[in-house]
Amino acid sequence: MSRVIKVIAHFCAWLPLAYYIVSAFRQTLGADPQETLLHGLGMWSFYFLLGSLSITPLRRWFRWHKLINYRRMLGLYFAFYLFLHVITYIWLFLGWQWEMIGSELIKRPYLTLGIVAFVMTLPLIATSNLWAQRKLKRHWKRLHQLVYGIAILGWVHYFWQVKADLNEPLLYGFLLAALLMPRVWWKIKQNRPELAKN
């Protein structure tokens, strides 16, 4: 049963990309298809990141321990859509002119945050396997705590570029805070055992 659920989860994870590919061929991405594609891929990357971050709280609060089987999958789809987001920008907005990246980062500081988050993601992708987990041992968990910084940078990157309605980025900001703050509290309780009794 769990294998069937995982297959369905993988199928659903590919649906956003399929939608954008079909919409691009049908030319139904709106008045600014490049921007629609760039924004959509970036948001789906953020959705998968939030989904990955939600696994631990849900396991601890509701005892849904089997959810751990989906955390790595969600994390990899986050990285996959983030990669597509970056490639879309370099391809459709810069035309593969790599020398323009420096000037773009200066003109648009929110891009700097996005690039930093992307670079921070690379070591997580490279070590997202059991071999790396065994080799790195306790350092693996410390390395993968970079995901918290990546999530914050990703949200600021998104918030910074929104010029009109801030309701949506603020909503995602509250959701991200709700996923990160329990971790802060658990860390405090871990370092102060007397609080665990309360």
Rank of each mutant, 00 (worst) to 15 (best):
N167Q: 10
L136S: 07
H139T: 15
L136D: 08
F118M: 04
Q133S: 15
S103F: 03
L76I: 10
W160L: 05
L76N: 00
R134F: 15
L180M: 11
L124S: 05
P123A: 10
K137S: 15
A126V: 14
W91L: 12
A126G: 07
G149Y: 12
G154C: 02
F80T: 04
Y110F: 07
F93S: 09
E104M: 05
Y110G: 02
L84V: 08
M120V: 01
W91G: 02
L113Y: 02
N129D: 15
A177K: 01
W160T: 10
W96N: 03
H144P: 11
L136T: 10
W185P: 00
L153E: 07
G154Y: 02
L180H: 07
G102R: 09
A132M: 01
L122R: 09
K107V: 01
V119G: 07
V184K: 00
S103G: 11
I115P: 00
L84W: 12
G173W: 06
G149H: 11
W160A: 08
L124I: 09
L113P: 00
W155Y: 11
M100E: 13
L175E: 03
G95H: 10
T127V: 14
M73V: 13
L176S: 07
W185V: 09
V156G: 03
Q161A: 05
M120H: 03
D165Y: 01
I152K: 06
M73Y: 08
F93V: 12
L92G: 02
L94K: 12
Q97P: 04
W140Y: 12
I101E: 00
L166Q: 15
Q161C: 03
L130W: 14
L146I: 14
A164L: 11
N167W: 06
L170W: 09
H144N: 10
F159V: 10
W155N: 02
